[in-house]
Amino acid sequence: MSDRLDISEPLVRALVADQFPQWADLPVRKVAPGGWDNQTFRLGETMSVRLPSAEAYAAQVTKEQPILAVLAPQLSLPIPTVLARGKASSLYPFAFGIHGWITGEPAMTAPIADMNGFADRLSGFIKTLHQADTNGGPAAGQHNFHRGGDLGIYGAETVAAIAELGDEIDGKAATAIWNEAISSRWERPPLWVHGDLAPGNLLVADGQLAAVIDFGTAAIGDPACDLALAWSFLDGEARARFRAALPLDAATWQRARGWVLWKTLITTVEMRRSGSPTLDEQRRILAVILSEPL
């Protein structure tokens, strides 16, 4: 995204000193990887600063913080605690959040002692998320890129990506999966969805899943979007345990496969155009999606 801001440690230090002088003497360190929609910086030893990287993500701060406060006591794993909210100023154009620091390493790089145990803890978290009170929760929509909403809104992108990747994927199989995914809707009361249960937002400590972060795309709606890790991260027995632990019907899992297909297709197209060195991982996920219906 061309309008992403260059957010540096000196800028964050200046923001904190300007709006939260009580923390002005604390060191500021950029977290790596720091995120895409939002950039994260460690403030001292016990806090983090989370700043939207572009206008498209700016509304997430004011939406996310009340959601965190509501959901935290209802979930099986820790999530960020809200400490303060910064305001837009001449230094930085958007609101930003200050949260408690959670120790852990993203699942995409952390050593995981037992993938079955990881899958069990993840499914347990999702079950408590689905049991959480949805009263007052925001419905899925443009504000969260339709996570939990109608998957069909991404139909044109998906069809175009299948066509562009026609030289390296089974286009007929991908089209069939997509058509099956958009053939059903969630007909039950809306449930809470995280919206981006990706390895980068799952923290691992001592070899096991320890916390979930980044609720900027949370909403209430169709839970299918939160199941993508069944194809993109889990495999074998861990994948089977994950599905068996969640009481969702076959149509929901079909929509979940559609969500991960759409995201992986458009990411693969973008990476192939740019010559990204991580393209092989996207191709691996696509192969799993196309060959394993779950």
Rank of each mutant, 00 (worst) to 15 (best):
L5W: 05
I220V: 15
V204M: 05
L151M: 09
R147M: 12
D214T: 00
W36H: 11
R121M: 07
A132D: 07
A210N: 14
K127V: 07
Y57Q: 05
T81E: 15
G104M: 09
L234G: 02
S89H: 06
E270M: 12
D222C: 00
G34Y: 10
A88M: 10
I220G: 00
L51P: 02
Q208L: 03
V212S: 01
P223R: 01
V12G: 01
R239F: 00
D280E: 14
L290D: 07
I7C: 05
A113L: 12
E105V: 15
P277Q: 10
A84V: 04
G141L: 10
F125N: 06
M271A: 13
A211G: 11
P106F: 11
I7L: 05
A230N: 02
L202G: 02
A14M: 05
A161H: 05
L191H: 11
N135T: 15
A14C: 03
F145W: 12
N135S: 14
V70T: 12
T103Q: 13
I102S: 06
P199R: 11
L246T: 04
L248W: 07
P27G: 08
W262F: 13
M115E: 12
E237K: 12
L15R: 02
V28Y: 06
S183R: 06
H143N: 10
S89E: 09
A69L: 12
E157A: 13
F233N: 01
A56M: 03
Q131D: 14
M115V: 10
P33E: 09
Q22N: 05
T109A: 13
S48I: 15
L229T: 03
G97R: 03
A156Y: 01
G236P: 05
A218W: 03
L191T: 11
N38R: 11
L197R: 09
D280S: 14
A119G: 09
L294I: 13
L83K: 10
G258F: 05
Q74S: 13
I102A: 04
G171A: 10
K87L: 14
A110M: 08
G171D: 01
D206M: 04
V31W: 03
V204K: 02
Q39K: 10
A218F: 00
E168V: 14
A176Q: 14
F242K: 01
A69E: 15
I112R: 09
L203D: 04
P66A: 07
G86V: 07
Q142H: 12
E237N: 10
P73G: 05
G155C: 09
D206R: 13
V204E: 02
W186K: 07
H146C: 04
A88I: 10
K172I: 09
E55W: 00
I162S: 04
G200M: 08
H194G: 04
Q131F: 04
A88S: 14
E55V: 07
M47T: 01
I153T: 10
A173N: 03
T252N: 06
P247I: 06
Q19N: 11
G166F: 06
G149S: 06
L15I: 02
G275H: 11
